[in-house]
């Protein structure tokens, strides 16, 4: 365990971080905004991974927490000028509370697997409908964050500023999420989650508090995800219930982690890189060929190929290839 990040993994990680930290020196705004997309996807994937990958609880409605965070941060800023980091606390609290309701319903009444996933979708959907009709947050016509005046300096506290600033913020968030995930796995709770994931009955029989530990996973995952939502709101400056709470977002959010390797630490990052690179590449290709829908079809085929050839995700396979020793994480 203690050897988890000794040697080559640590080198790889620090190298990656150094390259990413220096990227704005070389990259233009376009490339930076792509990198932001990658990092946000990685961040959200890690957040989902805590619940699904670590604790084995399938959520198909994580857009719910993205939306709650985004709206909490955005609406408080628009109405009261509340700084996003304060708004984020509200967003994380609300998300954790809603997660607690879903978790209680699911875990107390033994709603498991697919049925639990359906429960998470239901909550995301009716929250979307609620926001669609809630005037204070702009209802279905959307909520718009006032942009910073031109040429004003970056304001990290209010999250108003350049693409470069947003890039560093999401880089910091992703690095923190990685470190946090790793810390969780190395602690006792990481083992409890693994036990619950592999055999819930056995974990219960050994005296592990299954309900409590699953609940902690939900609360952490919901709060982390909603912080990503706050970032999204301030980066995009516009929020529509239809897009932020959409099923599409929930699926997109977990896709990177599935491709990269559920339950692994590097999986969400690798998955986000691969998916975004694939998307960009196929967009180029589609533009050359000039037939509508080619991109989507090719994208789908690529995802299927990856899942058929490497069902555990790309990272476990790559890890073996690079001879990075580890305990399977």
């Amino acid at each position: 365990m203690s050897a988890l990040f000794q040697d080559r993994r640590a080198v790889l990680l620090l190298g990656l971080l150094a390259i990413l930290a220096l990227a704005p020196l070389a990259a233009g705004d376009y490339l930076l905004s792509i990198l932001i997309t990658v990092l946000l996807q990685a961040y959200l994937g890690m957040s989902w991974n805590v619940m699904m990958g670590f604790a084995g609880q399938f959520s198909l409605g994580h857009a719910l927490y993205v939306g709650l965070g985004a709206y909490a941060g955005g609406a408080l800023f628009v109405h009261y000028g509340t700084p996003p980091w304060i708004g984020a606390i509200a967003g994380m609290a609300v998300s954790a509370a809603v997660g607690a309701v879903i978790g209680t319903l699911g875990f107390r009444f033994k709603v498991m697997g697919v049925y639990f996933a359906l429960l998470t979708i239901a909550f995301a959907e009716f929250t979307r409908v609620l926001f669609d009709h809630w005037g204070w947050v702009g209802a279905s016509s959307g909520l718009f964050l006032p942009p910073a005046p031109n040429n004003s300096p970056d304001n990290l506290w209010l999250l108003r500023g350049s693409t470069t600033m947003f890039y560093y913020v999401i880089l910091g968030m992703t690095a923190a999420a990685f470190w946090f995930s790793r810390a969780l796995l190395m602690r006792r709770i990481g083992y409890y989650w693994q036990a619950i994931r592999e055999d819930q009955d056995a974990a219960d029989a050994l005296g592990i508090d299954v309900f409590r530990n699953k609940m902690i996973a939900v609360l952490i995952s919901a709060a982390m995800t909603s912080l990503g939502g706050v970032f999204l709101a301030f980066f995009n400056n516009n929020l529509y219930p239809e897009s932020i709470f959409s099923m599409h977002r929930s699926i997109e959010l977990m896709l990177g982690t599935i491709i990269g390797g559920i339950g692994t630490l590097f999986g969400p990052i690798l998955g986000a890189v691969v998916l975004t690179a694939l998307g960009e590449l196929l967009t180029e290709l589609g533009a050359h060929i000039g037939i509508d829908g080619v991109k989507q079809i090719a994208y789908g085929i690529c995802l299927m190929l990856i899942l058929v050839l490497k069902p555990g995700g790309l990272w476990p396979w790559l890890r073996k290839l690079l001879r990075l020793e580890g305990d399977g994480r």
Partner: peptide
């Protein structure tokens, strides 16, 4: 009902 992907020592610790 052992935990298959944990090591033997980790399984014992879980007890």
């Amino acid at each position: 009902q052992i935990f298959p992907s944990m090591s033997v020592a980790e399984n014992l610790e879980m007890g």
